[in-house]
Design a protein around this nucleic acid. Structure first.
Length: 640
DNA sequence: ATAGGGTTAG
């Protein structure tokens, strides 16, 4: 496997100033600027600036412009207040200084980048000339802000300046139009002078189609390209992954690795994220082993992606191991680990890690950290601790509580039976409460048998989102708890009547020996279908005899006969996946299942019994958390 | 001094 230096490394080895460069020559003998290191940091620049002030050279145009250029080249964006001050200090700014201000603006956040276009207008009014450097910087700033409207005007300026055939300028326009979604404009520039085209032009065009979700056109270009480099591959792979074609992205990654071509960090992180999203452990492990066999540097981003992948694939121990192995971590790493522990129901461990995090030098928790922390409190039933953390977030860290945080708190209070308090919390919010919050509260009403409150919330939710199946299911559950079966039937009927397009089909998937097997309820499409159903039959029989299993049909009460109801539960996708898992996963290894929806109560009981009767471990990832089933118990303690 | 891909937490 070949493995070349990254672009950043290459940039570090490139001499900052060639001997033919004006700027370089001018400062070779400068008493202060010539003493700066080749890639100075912001403090270096500030220090040099201070010395210029002290010796009275701070009004010197080329010195200041040089400092501005250094700011523009910093690896982290320079503070806007500082580079604006530098530019303002230049008496008669020239193209060089102005271009570098544009570059600084382009590299800042959106607010500052918005000033790039007005500044360009100012340049033209003030008679400052523009050159081939001006447009790339200007367009970069404009695409950060997604203002495509003025693009065509700027384009005609560039043509007037005689720069329409300049490769850098052309590529800047291709990528500008691409990032604004103006694919036809981009394509016109791309097609205009086929002689003035290089790998960068192809990659920019490719990225345009990929970002727009036109992976078909992107693939066609990718196949037609005269050359491909690691960026072409990562653009294509990311295009697939982002448009949801995760398997295609992973397939292309396999091809890339199979051909022994150079892989870059962005690609690895993207495919790790794809396998994490899908919960495909075998794929994730394949990527991990690829990373190891290439001796790829173990960067913070890669480590974080691995921590996240293992956690999302159900291997919380491997996730922790990776986390502890990392020599450097950033907020993302800590967040991934804290949220991972919480998702696995390891509330105490997550809180301990949070304490350790607070002791870290130079890192501050973010809103996401608190999503993990509050989730952890909720899972561990630590009500007082949860309240304290919520307060800490708002008071101490000045983080505004978002819907997610309220969601955690409602869940925490509701789970502990403090439904009234949870209700008040939602009512007291300054923003409009997301229906999701009422849904969480409704779940608590169901569990604690609060029929009146549950009915009123349920009806309100159905009114708000009549096409949302989950609300009907929960409300029916509330009625079922109170044995109000007629109402259960009514709700079910009205659900059937409102069944809209937003209904999500439940599925479960399981990986076995390099293949992904996906099941839906009543699925007969699998090649081993007959054997799977036979196995399921046997499993159900043994559970009935040895563990006293009897299906609880209340969750699926329809307007149908009892026998059919039992049938409907019996073929829920996760049971098919479990039966298949029992067939193919060797003893001693856990059966890992990924679902898109939450488990129904009966399937949850069923799974618990399977682990006891068959002495197997089953790990289920549902829509929001993990269930570790072992010896007849589940890590969620039956509240999910 | 210039153009292309950029990930990770809910």
């Amino acid at each position: 496997m070949r493995f070349g230096p990254s672009k950043r490394l290459a940039a570090a080895f490139k001499p900052r100033f060639s001997l033919t460069s004006d700027a370089g020559l001018r400062h070779r003998h400068h008493p202060i600027l010539s003493r700066l290191p080749t890639s100075p940091s912001l403090p270096h620049i500030l220090q040099a600036h201070a010395r210029l002030l002290v010796v009275g050279l701070a009004a010197h145009r080329s010195s200041l412009a040089h400092l501005l250029a250094l700011c523009a080249a910093l690896s982290a964006p320079a503070p806007p207040r500082y580079f604006r001050l530098l530019y303002a200090a230049i008496a008669r700014p020239n193209v060089f200084a102005s271009n570098n201000l544009l570059r600084c603006l382009a590299r800042s956040d959106c607010d500052a980048a918005r000033d790039a276009l007005p500044f360009y207008a100012h340049m033209r009014r003030a008679g400052i000339p523009t050159n081939n450097y001006t447009f790339p910087f200007l367009l970069q700033a404009c695409s950060r802000d997604r203002v495509s409207g003025e693009g065509t005007q700027v384009h005609s300026h560039a043509v007037k300046c005689g720069l329409e055939e300049d490769l850098y300028v052309r590529n800047a326009f291709i990528s500008f139009y691409s990032s604004c979604g103006e694919l036809n404009h981009a394509r016109r520039v791309f097609d205009e002078f086929p002689g003035q085209r290089d790998l960068v032009s192809w990659n920019a065009m490719l990225a345009g189609y990929a970002r727009a979700g036109r992976t078909d056109v992107a693939q066609e270009l990718f196949d037609r390209m005269p050359d491909r480099d690691p960026i072409s591959w990562s653009t294509m792979i990311m295009g697939y992954v982002e448009s949801g074609a995760l398997e295609k992205g992973l397939g292309l990654f396999r091809e890339l690795v199979g051909k022994g071509l150079t892989v870059n960090e962005a690609t690895l992180v993207t495919v790790l994220s794809a396998s994490a999203q899908l919960g495909l452990l075998e794929v994730g492990q394949f990527i991990h082993s690829t990373i190891r066999s290439m001796d790829f540097p173990f960067t913070v981003a890669l480590g974080t992606a691995l921590v996240d992948m293992y956690a999302k694939c159900g291997c919380i121990e491997l996730s922790r191991h990776t986390f502890e192995e990392m020599k450097q971590r950033d907020v993302f790493t800590w967040n991934a680990m804290i949220c991972g522990l919480a998702a696995h129901g390891l509330g105490k461990e997550a809180l301990e890690l949070f304490q350790r995090f607070l002791g870290e030098e130079g890192l501050r928790p973010t809103g996401v950290t608190f999503v993990g922390v509050l989730n952890a409190c909720s899972r561990a039933g630590l009500v007082a601790e949860g309240r304290r953390c919520f307060e800490l977030m708002v008071e101490e860290y000045g983080i505004e509580a978002e819907t997610e945080h309220y969601g955690c708190m409602v869940d925490l209070l509701g789970r502990a039976g403090l439904v009234r308090e949870a209700y008040e919390l939602i009512r007291g919010m300054s923003m409009a409460a997301d229906p999701v919050l009422w849904g969480i509260l409704l779940g608590a009403c169901k569990v604690h048998g609060l029929v009146d409150l549950g009915v009123s919330i349920g009806n309100k939710l159905i009114e708000l989102e009549p096409e949302h199946d989950g609300h009907y299911v929960l409300l029916a559950g509330v009625y079922a708890r109170a044995n109000r079966w007629e109402d259960v039937v009514k709700v079910r009927r009205s659900m059937a009547a409102h069944r809209g397009t937003s209904k999500v089909a439940g599925w479960s998937l399981i990986e076995a020996h390099g293949t992904v097997h996906k099941f839906v309820a009543g699925d007969k499409g699998h090649k081993d279908s007959v054997e799977i159903y036979r196995t399921l039959e046997v499993v159900t029989m043994r559970l009935t005899e040895e563990a006293g299993y009897s299906p609880d049909v209340s969750a699926v009460l329809h307007d149908i006969g009892d026998e059919e109801k039992v049938h409907a539960i019996k073929e829920h996708s996760e049971r098919l996946a479990i039966a298949f898992g029992l067939m193919v996963v060797e003893r001693g290894r856990p059966i890992r299942i990924v679902k898109n929806l939450r488990a129904c109560g009966d399937c949850h009981e069923f799974t618990k019994m399977v682990t006891k009767v068959f002495e197997r471990e089953i790990v289920v990832r549902d829509g929001s958390r993990f269930h570790h089933f072992k010896e007849g118990k589940c890590s969620c303690f039956d509240y999910w």
